[in-house]
Design a protein around this nucleic acid. Sequence first.
RNA 1: GGACAGAUGGCAGAGUGGUCGAAUGCGCACGCUUGGAAAGCGUGUGUGCUAGAAAUAGCACCGAGGGUUCGAAUCCCUCUCUGUCCGCCA
Length: 435
Amino acid sequence: MLDIRLIRENPQGVKDRLAARHGGAALAALVDEVLACDEARRQAETEKQRLQSERNRMSKEIGMRRKAGEDTAAAEAQVKGFAAELAEWETMAERADVRQRDLLLGIPNLPHEACPVGHDAAANPEVRTWGEKPVFAFPPKDHVTLGTALGMLDFESATRITGSAFVVYRGVGARLERALINFLIDVHTRDHGYTEVLPPYLVHADSLIGTSQLPKFADQIYACPEDGLYLAPTAEVPVTNLHREEIVRADRLPIRYVAYTPCFRREAGAAGVGTRGLIRMHQFDKVELVKITVPEASMAALEDLTRHAENILQQLGLHYRVIELCTGDLGFGSTKTYDIEVWAPGQNSYLEVSSCSCFGDYQARRMNLRFRDPDTGKNRFAHTLNGSGTALARLYVALLETCQQADGSILLPEVLRPYVGVTEIRAAEADCPQG
RNA sequence: GGACAGAUGGCAGAGUGGUCGAAUGCGCACGCUUGGAAAGCGUGUGUGCUAGAAAUAGCACCGAGGGUUCGAAUCCCUCUCUGUCCGCCA
């Protein structure tokens, strides 16, 4: 949520910065509407308070005069006469306040000054690359072919028990997924200083509003309306909201969390777009990194967080590139984002396995997450960040496709071998992994 | 799912219709005291909003929302959460 004071003080500046976003031209009208609402709200608020003040003063007087045995009927009738007008202003103030908040919840974050300006994904600059595209002496297969042949991936069963865009991992395939989860969490806790958390997968609406999935993206989220709960589309939601409505002690910052959760996404409207195999699923596993920092530290924290995610791919020996999202491609709540894309030989393309974003105080404002500034004694909104460290399904794709051998077996990277318990995955072993 | 009890400031804990943003204690900050510290003494110590250039003033907030009343932390209703017991279950 944007700061209403900022909008009030520099509406044109806000509009200009929003205009660089995808669909940004339409946002100027929203900003104007917010301003009008703010004006009406403050006027109603002032009138309301004037009457309340008068009422309080007279009620006190009535109390004292009654104690003194005087007749107060006239004064009581007079105060009662305030009620209608007071209620009117109260209603107006309330309505304007709710409307203003609704409008603000629908306005995306301002892109950071450092965010490259561009129209769409084509304008995203490449920041760096690591490793090389592997060269094969044979035509590389894709992960569906490899995983199905090895008995690791079973799409048919998933369709039978649930539907399309779900998968069953089997045998050593399931074990590999579990191994990756453990490996990622181990690296981030041991080497990068994150605290492991295992949060609920179901969250209430306020949490989703806090991280800005709601109200705008309701159609992308699985809901359990009878209970007012939603399946979290990412661990970002429960983990960042760990500190909602809280004033965090400054000496506890930065807070760093790593969390494994499954992620549930309806992917409405995405049917048919790159849907083969594990690439776009309604449920996938992800290890997420979340940071809460003081405002001054957030940009450096984004760089660190991105490096932490990259480190995973480096240890697995997977070629990747880092791109920065331009203003036109930036996510709703983000002020600056790096995407990490891993090379998947079977797809002959890069796959987004991590999106690392700094949200500034945008989410903190929505969830009222503050810290006390030790220098001024004032409460300030914290900055929040998150990034996948990394998404598992697409990592799985890249791993299978990069590590495949001519006979269709998978030669695991060194670091995973202790976790999986084998060096190579072959058809014969697939369904009877060693324990 | 059923029954009962509870929710007040950083914490503990008073307060059952009026001058209560809220006693008291602890904690914390500053000052005095001291060679230094402790103890002791004194002062201060919530958040948000509105108006204002500011000093400051006002309004709201005692789990949340509604109601009664001239006036609600206090009375009534609904909900949420916590605790205890019962049932059920992994």
